[in-house]
Design a protein around this nucleic acid. Structure first.
Ligand code: SF4
Ligand code: SF4
Lengths: 134, 134
DNA sequence: CCCTAAAAGGATAAAAAATGTCTTGTTAGG
DNA sequence: CCTAACAAGACATTTTTTATCCTTTTAGGG
């Protein structure tokens, strides 16, 4: 329970590396993958997800590669994690009403809501800037 | 990521039900399973884990069944969850040193430590007493 | 207008974990 | 010694994770 997958770990490593580069340096996927020690094909999928939601900008063809979509101070770890892992849901019932028939009376339900809130708060409080600084 | 498994959910439902019973009422596994709507064979495995660490007491043979191992105010949700899901580890590197070669310099590592602490605090702050009261 | 570089997208596959089930063994009461 | 009840271990199924490969699209340069 509660464990980040490889995908999430790789995602963080990859985008933190990008955030540590000079602002206008376009990075090749293959270079990023090598630098952070992640299978290039796997990282490709991850960066495609980032690209779709604008966390990174991508350029095709010769001279192409990836750039951070926004300045690193404006990207939180929560966004990065949720981009590839989906929303933080410590238990099904916190996804929304109707997931569990017991949720109205259940005393455990609000506990999971609290857990969700705490985790989100911690992750939302960290930006790529802090993570990429020396 | 961060999702409780069925096993964990079932475990909580089962032991909360037990905590809601009169203190000396020995409960049959089959009754608990039916009451909380969990496959009996699966719940059996879960209660075996509880029994090993003393969270519940078990009695075999005719008239046997399960009792809570301690008073409900002395059993936290954290214990219940960790009994069946293992320790709360939001990322491999928080398990211990040596899990990740980068952990000494990594800026993300302490964030996962914080997440772990927050989750544990929330779960440790809830007892079966509170969860089983009307 | 081709040729090459580079990311995008989709299909597929192997490995691991989750979710149960079944069978047999053990303990206890009557 | 018969039956009730939990214990333990093996087994099976499904889902998720963790990739890899192939084809397509986009772009730059000669
Ligand atoms: S914690 Fe309560 S509401 Fe949530 S899934 Fe379990 S029983 Fe349902
Ligand atoms: S967060 Fe840092 S220390 Fe932890 S696994 Fe990832 S790279 Fe290693």
């Amino acid at each position: 329970m509660m464990e980040l997958t490889r995908k999430g770990e790789y995602a963080i490593r990859g985008i933190v590396y990008l955030a540590a580069q000079p602002p206008d340096r376009v990075c090749l996927l293959s270079d990023i993958a090598a630098a952070v020690d992640v299978p290039a094909t796997f990282l490709a999928k991850i960066f495609q997800q980032f690209s779709k939601i604008g966390l990174v900008k991508s350029y095709r063809g010769t001279g192409g590669g990836f750039l951070l979509g926004r300045v690193p101070e404006k990207i939180t770890l929560l966004e990065v994690v949720e981009a590839v892992e989906g929303p933080i849901v410590p238990n099904r019932c916190v996804v929304g009403a109707g997931e569990c028939v017991r949720d109205v009376t259940c005393k455990v339900h609000p506990v999971w809501k609290r857990v969700q809130g705490q985790v989100r708060d911690v992750l939302a409080g960290v930006t790529l800037k802090e993570l990429s600084e020396v």
